[in-house]
Design a protein around this nucleic acid. Structure first.
Length: 875
RNA sequence: GGGAGAUUAGCUCAGCUGGUUUAGAGCACCUGCCUUACAAGCAGGGGGUCGGGGGUUCGAACCCCUCAUCUCCCA
């Protein structure tokens, strides 16, 4: 059968993925083997695969496939996240297109739409992961709103409440006026924007014409001012102590207070205090007992306290009020100003600090073990520089606002029965609520009187339980699976969600399992485009991963995305890398084509093949040891590069060329067998990176029993490395390269056989002479004692090599070449001798270092003598 | 404003406890080859005063100081 000249990935990918699924290789059940567990960072249920997912999941698959081959019981749990804000926003938008307003729907009606949307779009991303080759245990697919999962979330809320770690309170929160919900600090992105600094003057109360001037970026909030604050040490304003000021437009009289918080350098040194609309002002307000005047509606328009601006949007009011202040003579001047403004991560709306009644988790105490166990290395970060960032955050951890004014998510299990802010109970069911509320109120409370909290929990309040809840560790703590699979082994994720997710999973792990959730965290970088921009939908600079897979094959894309992606470094992605990956799969394919064409005949094994096998055996083992070590250090892309070079350079370019019989010549059985067995080992180490082509070739290279699949084969065991063989071969390689060079310089075709003479000045191992003969296409290799005249020469390890060419030799070129080498060697000698002449070096440096320098010196001297001798012989 | 990290070839990165390094790899580039596995290939080659300056040391890409530039995180 004719084997195609290029590898065709599509068919192989479909065939083998289906085969793996049918054989149940991805499925894991607890057994006696050591468990290796990875939980997927659950993508948004309605999301689609982007390059970040590709990177992240390829790394996970590489780790999982290798663990499986190491004989571990590998379990990779997939699933999706309900992503409350993102999903709800999408559903709202879709309904709007259909002419339905969310506010016209009841909660249940809305949730029905949301679930329909989830059924329709949910899980697309998981299907896409299959195309990539992800070997997830699909029977274990989880969703953060699955009934049992939801139960854990609610249980944890109740438990933390009972422990006094969850409280309800009025706090300054980040308000998203578009999504109409509170956000956690982590969901707010701060960006620099060009804005204006407005200088506005306030009249000092009781004076005729005494003014003070404040500077603000938000003049519209003047209507909510409750004080003016100055630094008590500011000599400029001593005369204002104890006075009051009149707020422009609203004409309210507010106190002038003193606090060292005010930066005397910034603006005018006078600060307007608006406790309802600025976090720092809120703190000031609390300290000085100021009135809190909230002038905004939830959607960012002004309310009745905004006077004649009622109903207008905050940004519109900013423009209008500027004019009014100017017209009335309050606006002193404006300046251009760059400041940082918070934006909603989801809706990109400008965040409004807003006072509201929300639920919080008290983080101080429960986060302690999470900090300790990362700092002491029980949980390892790769790269570990992220420990610093983590430490900084954990040491300054703030309480976590967990309530969201949304419907899509886990509804807060709190039940209200009265008008007092304390008239509520926290429990799972309305039946319990009736009981608890009655007890608390001291009277019979009926179901009708009870109203469940309208809010849902922050999505991360469910994802932080992910490594536990996918094994039902909270609802069924004694079950076999949680005991077997938890703690999981490695987590692969992006540093952006270190606080959102990683830190909180660690916290939940210690709080609920008394143990770490995973041992290693591998942080990937951000995938960027060629220009260094983050890949994003809005920029349209992100290639569609599925199209890439169709074009380059899944293996090609996997290689392309990993080839230059060290942990924690951003990955500037360019599709040419996938081309490199595809070329690699094609190279291996063609190596197979070559080997498959060889026919065995009973014959002796050529010497060149025999030594080639000896060499590659050591070479492979040396590389395997390195590859294992790189894996242990989570240096995944370096491991891939080591494999790439082992396969392409060592196996294809050297080994196969050495054992390859002449055109249409047969091969001996021993060499073919050794070659096939090397090939199999190479396919095994390739398999985690390029699973499809590896499986395909595994089955082509030999007929296999049922169940003999590479995915479940045993990872090669590293055997002994003969360093002498490697060393001797390196010298033979150098000789061959020199021969090729001379051929090229003199345009001698590869087909033309040439002679090589060797003058032995030193011990010379002749093991690889047969290889030199073959690879150099020599007619003979002869050892001589005298110089050979009229020849090209080169030096390897102190021995002289001659290739005579009769008349064709270009003496001048040869002289130049020798002179160049001589100059370099002399320069080198000088640098070595400088060291050796330095008495302090000889006295101070370790013996070995000095001995090495001496060896370098003698080698250089010897080389110089030979080169000079040759040069003089040329004239 | 606070914190972390980075700066090595055109690009992306290695270089681990300072000494086998007048610095390595892959890609890109240049030259020659359609050599009968692969032109998605083969063979060969060029390219870096290790961001600038100062210091410690017998010895610095590596340690210290300083300046510059960039990235990320937090407020």
């Amino acid at each position: 059968m004719e084997i195609p000249k290029t590898y065709e990935p599509q068919k192989a990918e479909e065939k083998w993925y289906a085969h793996w699924m049918n054989r149940g290789y991805f499925h894991s059940e607890p057994d006696k083997r050591e468990a290796y567990t990875v939980v997927i960072p659950p993508p948004n249920v309605t999301g689609v695969l982007h390059m970040g997912h590709m990177l992240n999941n390829t790394i996970q698959d590489v780790l999982v496939r290798r663990a499986r081959m190491l004989g571990k019981n590998a379990c990779w749990v997939p699933g999706t996240d309900h992503a409350s804000i993102a999903t709800e926003a999408k559903v709202v938008q879709k309904l709007r297109q259909e002419g339905i307003k969310k506010s016209d729907l009841s909660r249940d009606e809305f949730l029905k739409h949301a679930f329909e949307w989830k059924e329709k779009h949910g899980g697309i991303i998981l299907e896409q992961l299959k195309k990539l080759g992800a070997s997830c245990d699909w029977e274990r697919t989880n969703f953060t709103m699955d009934p049992e999962y939801s139960e854990s979330v609610i249980n944890v809320f109740i438990d933390l409440y009972k422990k006094g770690k969850i409280y309800r309170g009025v706090r300054m929160v980040n308000w998203d006026p578009e999504a109409l919900t509170a956000l956690s600090d982590e969901e707010v992105l701060h960006k620099e924007v060009n804005s204006k600094l407005f200088y506005v003057r306030y009249k000092v109360a009781g004076s005729d014409d005494q003014w003070l001037t404040i500077a603000t970026t938000r003049p519209e909030t003047i209507l909510g001012d409750s004080a003016i604050c100055i630094n008590p040490n500011d000599d400029r304003f001593k005369h204002l102590h104890g006075k009051q000021a009149i707020v422009p437009i609203s004409n309210r009289t507010v106190p002038i207070i003193l606090d060292e918080y005010v930066d005397m350098e910034f603006g005018t040194g006078c600060l307007k205090v608006t406790p309802a609309h600025d976090t720092n002002d809120y703190e000031l307000g609390k300290k000085h007992n100021l009135e809190t005047i909230d002038i905004f509606n939830d959607n960012g328009t002004l309310n009745s306290l905004g006077l004649h601006y009622e109903g207008k949007d905050r940004f519109e009011v900013r423009k209008l009020i500027e004019k009014e202040l100017y017209d009335k003579g309050y606006l002193v001047k404006t300046e251009d100003h760059i400041n940082k403004v918070g934006f909603s991560e989801r809706t990109n709306a400008v965040i409004e600090p807003k006072l509201s009644l929300q639920w919080f988790v008290d983080m101080k105490e429960i986060s302690q073990p999470a900090l300790e166990n990362v700092m002491n290395g029980n949980i390892a970060f790769h790269p570990d520089k992220f420990k610093n960032t983590y430490k900084h955050w954990m040491e300054n951890i703030k309480d976590w606002c967990i309530s969201r004014q949304l419907w899509w998510g886990h509804r807060i299990p709190a039940w209200y029965y009265g008008s007092d802010s304390n008239d509520y109970v926290v429990c799972k069911t309305i039946e319990e609520a009736i009981e608890l509320a009655s007890a608390k109120a001291g009277r019979e409370i009926s179901a009708v009187e009870l109203k469940q909290d309208e809010d849902v929990l922050d999505t991360w309040f469910s994802s932080w339980l992910w490594p536990i809840s996918v094994f039902n560790g909270l609802t069924d703590p004694e079950n076999e699976e949680i005991k077997y699979y938890y703690p999981t082994n490695d987590l692969v994720t992006a540093p952006e969600i270190m606080f959102f997710w990683v830190a909180r999973m660690i916290i939940a792990g210690y709080e609920y399992m008394g143990e770490l959730p995973f041992r290693n965290v591998y942080y990937t970088g951000i995938v960027r485009d060629k220009l260094g921009r983050k890949m994003s939908k809005s920029l349209g600079n992100s290639p569609d991963p599925i199209e890439l897979i169709e074009k380059y094959g899944a293996d090609g894309v996997r290689v392309g995305i990993l080839i230059s992606s060290p942990a924690g470094n951003d990955l500037p992605f360019d599709s040419s890398q996938c081309e490199q990956g595809r070329n690699f799969t094609n190279k291996v394919w063609n190596a197979y084509r070559l080997v498959s064409a060889w026919e065995v005949r009973e014959m002796g094994q050529p010497r060149s093949a025999q030594v080639a096998i000896e060499w590659f055996d050591s070479k492979f083992n040396a590389a395997l040891i390195e590859i294992n070590d790189l894996f242990d250090k989570f240096r995944i892309s370096e491991a891939l590069m080591a494999i790439y070079k082992l396969v392409w350079d060592d196996f294809c370019s050297w080994y196969l060329e050495m054992v390859k019989p002449g055109f249409e010549q047969p091969i001996d059985a021993k060499t073919l067998e050794a070659t096939k067995s090397f090939f199999e080992k190479l396919l095994k180490v390739m398999h985690p990176f390029t699973p499809f082509v590896a499986e395909e070739l595994w089955h082509l290279i030999r007929t296999r029993e049922k169940g003999d699949d590479i995915i479940v084969s045993q990872w090669p065991l590293a055997q002994t490395v003969d360093k002498k063989v490697l060393n001797d071969f390196a010298k033979a390689e150098e000789v061959i390269t020199n021969i090729r060079n001379i051929r090229k310089q003199h345009s001698i075709a590869n087909k033309v056989k040439i002679d090589l003479y060797v003058k032995k000045n030193r011990d010379l191992d002749q093991t690889f002479d047969a290889v030199i003969l073959k690879m150099g296409n020599l007619s003979q290799l002869e050892y001589v004692t005298d110089n050979v005249g009229n020849a090209n020469t080169f030096l390897v390890d102190g021995n002289e090599y001659f290739i005579p060419f009769g008349d064709s030799i270009d003496i001048e070129a040869e002289r130049q070449k020798l002179q160049q080498e001589l100059d370099y060697t002399k320069g080198f000698l000088v640098s070595v001798q400088k060291k050796l002449q330095n008495e302090k070096f000889v006295a101070g440096a370790p013996e070995q270092v000095v001995a090495l320098e001496k060896k370098k010196e003698s080698d250089a001297l010897e080389k110089i003598a030979i080169l000079e001798d040759k040069l003089s012989g040329l004239s």
